[in-house]
């Protein structure tokens, strides 16, 4: 496959200053996103997955320049996205939309749904005023709501319906890429399933490209084509969905997968429990950032930051950043989880 990616970022960094001291000067930096690169092909869903503090949401905002990245390249549709001026950026926004976790916080409570949608279209100037009512009806239909519901205010809807409105707003300007930032995390499972199915149907219908950010590996498996696992600002493993879930290579990916409780009582407790908390991103461990919690860590892990790489039997677009991948595979194979005794050593 040699499709040109719709979106690509190289060496993306986002550092936040930590101020302190008597004169309130910058004392240190939180490296929320620290030199990551990935590309998304048109019509594809790439998921960023990881625990809190891994930098996945910051990445989502940085690639849209909602928060200006500290460094790195962003290419969108062949264009250098970072060199765009403020006004050019505003024009480009219609191609890249974002859906947030809490739809309620991102919808103006004083506007009716139709006003919300109308405003989104008016700002981007994509749909002439006279065509907008028809477009609003169409959008409501597309996200599975009834047209007359556009006359209501956001508070009159349930969480799932609000998320549908958020999706309708994103769709109103015909975007190419949608960043879904924990878009279904606040929803109950039955509603979550409805919204996930909707996102997938819309992708097929409009050939949308998604950057899907989530902490829920079940959701990620369902929606993604490819998955990147993040830990403390770094991508530790990136692969197509099948490789990642069926033969993960990074010990963190495996630990993550084995930590998720499976809704099947017969499959109980084939799990390793990794010790300790995620270290503070303000003071990340040296070398491999996972070494403080990794059951396989050796001296080299404390000193050298591993690069993303591929070893012999891995699928083409599968890469992981671990010094000991080969030994671990030789000893334990490539099952998604690791044998229990590993965690207890």
């Amino acid at each position: 496959m040699t499709t040109t990616p719709l979106f690509e970022t190289k060496n993306l960094k986002k550092y936040f200053p930590v101020k302190g001291g008597i004169l309130n000067r910058t004392k240190a930096e939180v490296k929320a996103v620290d030199d990551i690169s990935f590309a998304i092909n048109p019509g594809e869903t790439l998921s960023l997955v990881g625990e809190s503090g891994c930098g996945k949401s910051t990445t989502g905002r940085a690639v849209l320049r909602l928060e200006e990245p500290t460094d790195g390249e962003i290419t969108f549709n062949g264009e250098d996205f970072r060199s765009l001026s403020k006004s050019e950026l505003r024009d480009k926004r219609k191609d890249m939309q974002i859906i947030f976790q809490d739809p309620y916080a991102s919808l103006n409570p004083r506007q009716k749904v139709k006003q919300i949608l109308d405003e989104a279209m008016a700002i981007q100037g994509v749909v002439p005023k006279k065509d907008r009512p028809a477009r609003i009806r169409e959008l409501m239909d597309v996200v599975g709501m009834r047209p007359h519901q556009a006359e209501r205010y956001p508070h009159e809807f349930s969480g799932g319906q609000r998320q549908r409105i958020g999706i309708a707003r994103a769709l109103s300007v015909d975007p190419k890429l949608i960043v879904c930032d924990e878009a279904v995390s606040a929803l109950d499972v039955s509603t979550q399933a409805q919204v996930l199915n909707l996102l997938r149907d819309l992708q097929r219908k409009y050939d949308l490209t998604y950057l899907f950010i989530s902490h829920d590996l079940g959701v990620v498996r369902h929606i993604s084509d490819r998955v990147a696992v993040m830990y403390l600002g770094k991508i530790v493993e990136i692969a197509d969905k099948k490789s990642l879930f069926d033969s993960p290579r990074h010990p963190y990916t495996r630990a993550l997968l084995s930590a998720i409780p499976v809704p099947d009582p017969d499959e109980k407790s084939e799990r390793i429990v990794i010790e300790g908390d995620v270290p503070s991103p303000m003071d990340p461990p040296s070398g491999c950032r996972f070494h403080t919690r990794c059951p396989f860590a050796t001296d080299i892990c404390k000193q050298e930051d591993p690069e993303l790489r591929k070893t012999g039997d891995m699928a083409d677009d599968h890469q992981a950043a671990c010094h000991h991948m080969e030994e671990i595979v030789a000893q334990y194979g490539t099952t998604p989880t690791l044998p229990e005794e590993v965690g207890n050593e």
Binding site: V189, S190, Q192, A193, L196, D216, L217, G218, V219, V220, R221, H222, I223, F245, L257, I260, V262, P263, P336
Partner: peptide, 9 residues
């Protein structure tokens, strides 16, 4: 409920 959970496995 059971059929609506996306599973990671």
């Amino acid at each position: 409920l059971m059929n609506s959970i996306p599973r990671h496995d």
